[in-house]
């Protein structure tokens, strides 16, 4: 029996099942009516004969189930026989078996791969809040979106500003950019790796409602250029203030030429350009001057934030 024959006979068997059920019911009904006739002949009334026949026959649903079980067992036996036969004929022609198995494996593999892609791209929502409301905005040139390989890039910053100002359909508009970059990790022994990195404003995380697993994300204020420098210098000034207090209470001199010389040496050693050493020294001298004045409490306070 070939696979096609088997499939056909399987389908036929399924469709015949119904007819067979009806036939069985008919067969049992015929038996029951004969039984009733006999009871009538022996002198019972029609109704009584009917019940007597039913009693004699027993539970007809149970009989039907027993017969059905016979069918099922036969079906299983035949199925087992078919499987055995198939396995034997496959073993007899290993070439055909190999091709069949390979075809199945490739088919199943390809389907699984395609489904995973479709599942990830089309069926599963993006892992962001209100993913169904996320859209990507592209500018176009002659109807062709500026994105991907055809026109690398995206809307200009000015476009983005116009979108944000004139659009009332979106809660938030954020700009992002991605590219490949060499990234080295803290562990200096590790090889730098090329990774896809993104450049985003702080509002990006707000818009997508992303929370970091540990630590915190950067804020919109830190986004502004220069903020980082100011924060660094302010942190250093705070430290200088503490040291100044300590020096005053222990009567140590504020000016420490040896320590300042070490600092200058460190700065010179750390300088990798593009500023010449001398220029960097000037900036540092100025910083140290200011910090020294802060330690002596000589600076006039005009910000209202630091000093008194």
């Amino acid at each position: 029996m070939s696979v096609r024959d088997w499939l056909r006979s399987f389908a036929t068997r399924l469709s015949r099942r119904r007819a067979r059920e009806d036939e069985l019911a008919r067969e049992l009904a015929a038996h029951l009516s004969l039984e009733a006739e006999e009871q009538q002949e022996s002198g019972l009334a029609v109704d009584e004969a009917h019940y007597a026949a039913r009693r004699a026959f027993g539970n007809s649903t149970l009989v039907q189930e027993d017969v059905r079980e016979v069918w099922n067992v036969m079906w299983l036996e035949r199925f087992a026989r078919d499987v055995k036969y198939a396995a034997r004929s496959l073993r007899k022609s290993p070439g055909f078996a190999a091709v069949a198995i390979l075809t199945l494996a490739l088919g199943i593999g390809a389907n699984t791969a395609i489904f995973s892609a479709i599942n990830a791209l089309m069926l599963q929502p993006l892992p962001f809040a209100a993913a169904d409301q996320l859209v990507r905005i592209n500018s176009t040139i002659n109807g062709v979106p500026i994105t991907g390989f055809a026109y690398p890039g995206g809307p200009s910053l000015l476009d983005m500003r116009d979108f944000a100002e004139n659009s009332h359909s979106f809660q938030k508009i954020v700009v992002y950019d991605t590219w490949r970059k060499n990234v080295s990790f803290g562990d200096s022994a590790a090889e730098p790796e090329q990774m896809q990195v993104g450049l985003v404003p702080a509002s990006y995380f707000e818009a997508l409602e992303i929370q970091p697993i540990i630590g915190r994300l950067f804020t919109e204020e830190e986004n502004q250029e220069g903020q980082g420098f100011v924060a660094l210098i302010s942190a250093r000034a705070q430290a200088a203030q503490e040291i100044g207090k300590l020096k005053r209470s222990t009567s140590l001199p504020v000016y420490e030429p040896n320590r300042e010389r070490v600092i200058f040496e460190n700065v010179r050693a750390a300088n990798k350009g593009p500023l010449p050493d001398i220029e960097l020294m000037h900036i540092y001298e100025r910083i140290i001057d200011v910090m020294r004045a802060l330690q002596k409490d000589e600076l006039a306070s005009n910000t209202g934030k630091t000093g008194k």
């Binding site: 036939e23 069985l24 067969e27 049992l28 038996h31 026959f57 027993g58 539970n59 007809s60 149970l62 009989v63 027993d66 017969v67 079980e69 016979v70 069918w71 036969m74």
Partner: peptide, 23 residues
């Protein structure tokens, strides 16, 4: 003969090819 035994037996034997049935 119990009917619960007779009909399953008949159908099983028909399947095994020992009996042929016709209405």
């Amino acid at each position: 003969v119990e009917h619960g035994s007779l009909y399953p037996a008949l159908h099983r034997m028909e399947r095994k090819g020992w009996l042929a049935a016709k209405w």
